[in-house]
Amino acid sequence: MSSMTQIACTCGHTRLEVRGAPILVCECLCDSCRAAAERLAQLPGARSTLTSYHATPCAEYRKDRVDILSGAETMREFRLSPTSGSRRVVATCCNTPLFLEMKGAHWLSLYLHLWPAEARPKPSLRTMTSDLKDRARLPADIPNLKTHTVAFYGKLLAAWIAMGFRNPKIAIAGKIDA
């Protein structure tokens, strides 16, 4: 039997359930994750999702292991540009970023701030550190990788194979600008 964990936006209205272990838990330092987090933090009542060294902590989950329990009507997408291949989904009840979805991807990058601190998954690596001007300020507690590795993509591929090469769609009611 797989474990189930409920996670939620800041106010608790929008709740998700994840089943099983994540594919990977990491901190992303790419330019787009940092730019999106900075813009979303400017929404009324929003808090920053960035660490003190500007990383975005996420747990990568297969889409078929994530269920929306409540608050679907509050979920809106945000794109850095109209042609962006990725979208961040925000619970507008309290302007909490929920996840990142890449175009065509079979997984979601769920933001770690959604978990209670005592149950929060721990990142095993940082990725895309090559986008930083100064990598020296990063902690040395986990590997600080310049880019995504073959192992990173291998884990995603293994998850997709286990899903039978399916890519469930997630309907979002609208858009927001930030």
Rank of each mutant, 00 (worst) to 15 (best):
N144P: 13
A55W: 00
L110P: 07
R65D: 06
L43C: 08
L132C: 05
T83C: 10
L100G: 07
Q42W: 02
C93Y: 06
E27G: 11
L108P: 08
L69S: 12
T49S: 02
S81E: 14
P121I: 12
S52D: 02
A140R: 04
M75R: 06
L50T: 02
P97V: 01
G154T: 15
N144G: 08
T96G: 00
L40N: 02
P143C: 08
E101M: 10
S86F: 15
R87W: 13
E27W: 04
H106V: 12
E118Q: 10
R120Q: 12
I68Y: 06
R120M: 07
R126P: 06
C33K: 01
D31I: 09
P121Q: 11
R62D: 03
T147N: 08
A151I: 11
Y153A: 11
C30E: 10
R34K: 12
V89G: 12
L43G: 04
S109R: 04
A36I: 01
T149D: 00
L112S: 01
A35L: 10
L132P: 00
A59F: 11
H54P: 01
S84A: 15
R135C: 09
F152S: 12
I23S: 08
Y53R: 02
F78D: 05
Y153V: 05
R62Q: 04
L108E: 11
T92I: 04
A59T: 07
S86C: 14
M102F: 14
L110S: 10
R135S: 10
R34S: 11
T127Y: 12
G45Y: 05
G71I: 06
L145C: 09
S81G: 15
S86Y: 15
S81I: 14
S124T: 13
A21G: 04
R62G: 00
T83L: 12
V90S: 07
A36L: 03
Y111I: 01
